[in-house]
C-alpha cells in the first residue's frame, strides 16, 4: 500500500491535545486559586497527575507497568489520607485534593492519542468535563467543615455537591422537579467555551486523523494489517511476462480525495447546527430542550435502526 505508511500515533495529534488541554487547565486553576485555598500542598498534588499524565501522553513514560504503577500510586495518594489520617491533617488532604483536581490529565491522552477509538475519546472527554464541573461546583459551595485545611474543605464541599446532586436526581424521579442540582446549575462561560474547543478537537481528530496529504483514509486508527512478509522477491526473479509486469507496475495505489470539502463536512455542519439550536433552546426553555433531546435521540435511533435493519431477501429484493 505504497503511500499509506505507519506513523507515530502521538506526534501528529499534538494539535488535538492543544485544543483539549485548556478546558481542564482552566477549571483546575480556577479551583486552585479559588476560595478554599489549598496552598503549596494542593498545587504540588495537582502538578503530579498533570506531569505524569502528560508524560504518558507524549510517550515519555511508555511501559504499561510504569504507567499503571504511577496511576495506582496517585490513587493511593488520594485514598490514604481518608484511611490513615485524621480529618483536617493539612498536607495529606491538600495533596489528595490536588491529585483529584488534576486527575483528568491521567486519562486525557485517550482523547487525543492516535490509537484511541472514538469510544475511548468521547468517554475520556466526558469524564474530564465531569471532574471539571464537579470541581467548579465544589469551589462555589461553602463547606460545612470550617477552620480546616484547604484540601479538607475542598473534599467537604465536593461531598456536599455530590450528595445534593444525587438527592436532586432522586427528586426528579420522584416528583419531576429538577431543583437543587448543583452540577446542572454550574455554568462558567469561559469553561463552556474552552469545553466547546475541546469537543471540536476530539471531533476533528476523527475527521482529520492525519496531517499529511498522503493519507488515503480518514479512519486510520483502525489497526493496520501486518505486511505480507519481510522478504519480497524481485520481479525479475518471479519470471513474469512483460504484460504481467506492466499490470503490476500500473496497479492503483491508495488515493486521497481531491475534493474541496473535507470528508464528513456535511455531517459536521449538521452537528454544529444541532448544537447551536440545542444551546439556544436550552437557554430559552431548558425543560423543552431536554424533551427535544430525548425525542431527537429516539428519532435518530429509529432512523439509524431502520437503515441498519434492512436486508436482502433470498431473491435479492429489499426487505423491510
Amino acid at each position: 500500500m505504497g503511500t499509506v505508511r505507519r506513523r507515530v500515533s502521538v506526534s501528529d495529534r499534538l494539535w488535538a491535545a492543544a485544543l483539549l488541554y485548556p478546558a481542564p487547565l482552566y477549571a483546575a486553576l480556577l479551583v486552585l486559586l479559588g476560595p478554599p485555598g489549598g496552598g503549596v500542598g494542593m498545587l504540588v498534588g495537582f502538578l503530579l497527575p498533570l506531569g505524569f499524565g502528560t508524560a504518558t501522553g507524549v510517550g515519555l513514560v511508555r511501559p504499561p507497568t510504569w504507567v499503571w504503577t504511577g496511576r495506582l500510586l496517585l490513587a493511593l495518594l488520594v485514598l490514604v489520607p481518608f484511611v490513615a489520617l485524621p480529618l483536617g491533617n493539612g498536607v495529606g488532604y491538600d495533596l489528595a485534593a490536588g491529585v483529584v483536581i488534576g486527575s483528568p490529565f491521567l486519562w486525557l491522552e485517550y482523547a487525543w492519542s492516535g490509537g484511541s477509538s472514538p469510544l475511548r475519546r468521547v468517554v475520556a472527554l466526558q469524564a474530564t468535563f465531569l471532574v471539571g464541573i464537579a470541581c467548579l461546583a465544589a469551589s462555589a459551595t461553602e463547606p460545612s467543615i470550617v477552620g480546616r485545611s484547604g484540601g479538607s474543605r475542598f473534599f467537604g464541599a465536593l461531598g456536599q455537591v455530590l450528595l445534593s446532586q444525587l438527592g436532586g436526581i432522586g427528586n426528579v424521579y420522584n416528583s419531576g422537579v429538577g431543583a437543587g442540582l448543583p452540577l446542572e446549575s454550574t455554568f462558567d462561560a469561559v469553561y463552556a467555551a474552552l469545553g466547546g474547543v475541546a469537543l471540536l478537537g476530539v471531533v476533528l481528530s476523527w475527521m482529520y486523523p492525519h496531517t499529511a496529504r498522503d493519507e488515503a483514509l480518514p479512519w486510520s486508527w483502525v489497526p493496520r494489517r501486518a505486511p505480507a512478509g519481510p522478504l519480497r522477491p524481485a520481479e525479475e526473479e518471479l519470471g513474469l511476462r512483460p504484460g504481467q509486469r506492466e499490470a503490476l507496475a500500473t496497479r492503483t495505489r491508495p488515493l486521497a480525495p481531491d475534493t474541496v470539502l473535507p470528508p464528513g463536512f456535511l455531517s459536521l455542519v449538521v452537528a454544529v447546527l444541532l448544537l447551536v439550536g440545542f444551546v439556544a433552546l436550552a437557554d430559552g426553555a431548558p425543560s423543552f430542550a431536554l424533551l427535544v433531546l430525548v425525542l431527537g435521540c429516539v428519532a435518530a435511533a429509529t432512523a439509524v435502526s431502520f437503515v441498519l435493519g434492512r436486508h436482502l431477501t433470498a431473491l435479492g429484493g429489499l426487505e423491510g
Binding site: P118, V122, L125, Q126, A127, F129, L130, I133, Q165, I169, G178, L181, L183, E184, T186, F187, Y191, A192, G195, G196, L199, V203, G264, L266, S267, L268, V270, A271, L274, L275, F278, V279, A282, L290, L293, G296, C297, A300, A303, V304, V307, L308
Partner: peptide, 26 residues
C-alpha cells in the same frame, strides 16, 4: 454521564457525537 449531571456542556457532547453519526449514516 450528561443525564446524571444535566449540565449543558455535558449534554453538548452526546448531541454532537450522535448527531454526526446519525447524519453520516442517513
Amino acid at each position: 454521564f450528561a443525564l446524571v449531571t444535566l449540565n449543558l456542556l455535558m449534554l453538548l457532547v452526546p448531541v454532537a457525537v450522535l448527531g454526526i453519526v446519525a447524519t453520516e449514516l442517513l
